[in-house]
Design a protein around this nucleic acid. Structure first.
Lengths: 128, 128
DNA sequence: CTGGCACTTGACGTTTACGTAAAGGTGATA
DNA sequence: TATCACCTTTACGTAAACGTCAAGTGCCAG
């Protein structure tokens, strides 16, 4: 039996520097499924993992809808092989997008570096 | 004299797969400064370069406000050395953010690849 | 001169991703 | 038992980044 640790909303809020509203919103969208004791939310380790991926995705500019698709890789209710294969296919697509995004970031980086070099040169010339 | 080519809004819209509204909005924010002949817009090569960077930034999840800062690297009205140094400093900061983002993308990529591998294993087991 | 197409300026609408009260429930602790 | 921090739902508000009309302008081909 792996530990069945539960987290309260404030715990995750602190750990990930988020807000309660955000977590509740993600739940509303079905991205998180905390257990309820009374009317209080108790998040599982699985929720925590998903939250980490969600927030990472957000920082990288993905929409919650896109992130939802990525998370379907982690859904356990995959009944048949067809289902799994579909999810895998989508995952491959997302991976390609991510790779493309890395390339674009490198291009942006190069562009900015080049421009910075020009500016530094301009600075030196002004010293004359 | 470098060529002084001008582009109409439709040209850039086509080239970059954007909409006129988007270009006008960027102008409203001061990100683009097309010349006016009558009330028609004529974009310079410089506008075109800036537009490319803006759209690239958007695809990568940067806000227009952040992009505006990056574009300040390309503003030519930098009067003094202090100005230039400031802009350069900001550029360095942005570069660091970009590098961090690349690292996070790699992490996300690894995460998804790992999960995909698990799913493929699950598929094979079902073949038994 | 007349289509017709590309362009213009408002101005209100929309989506996403939450923020922000208001009003109240819960549970460990003094 | 009262207090206090932490939690809850409901609901309206908001910022960013455009979308989407409506109504008019500029200009070239026929």
């Amino acid at each position: 039996m792996p530990e069945k640790k539960r987290y309260r909303i404030g715990d995750l809020v602190q750990e990930f520097d988020a807000t309660p509203r955000t977590l509740r919103y993600y739940e509303e969208l079905g991205l998180l499924n905390p257990e309820r004791r009374g009317n209080q939310r108790y998040y599982s380790e699985r929720d925590r993992v998903r939250l980490r991926l969600i927030l990472r995705g957000r920082r990288l500019g993905f929409s919650l809808e896109e992130i939802a698709k990525m998370l379907s890789l982690y859904d356990q209710d995959k009944t048949g092989k067809t289902q799994i294969r579909e999810v895998l296919k989508m995952g491959e697509k997302k991976l390609q997008e991510i790779e493309a995004q890395i390339e674009e970031l490198k291009a942006l980086k190069a562009e900015i570096e080049e421009r910075a070099a020009e500016l530094r040169k301009l600075l030196e010339e002004q010293d004359a």
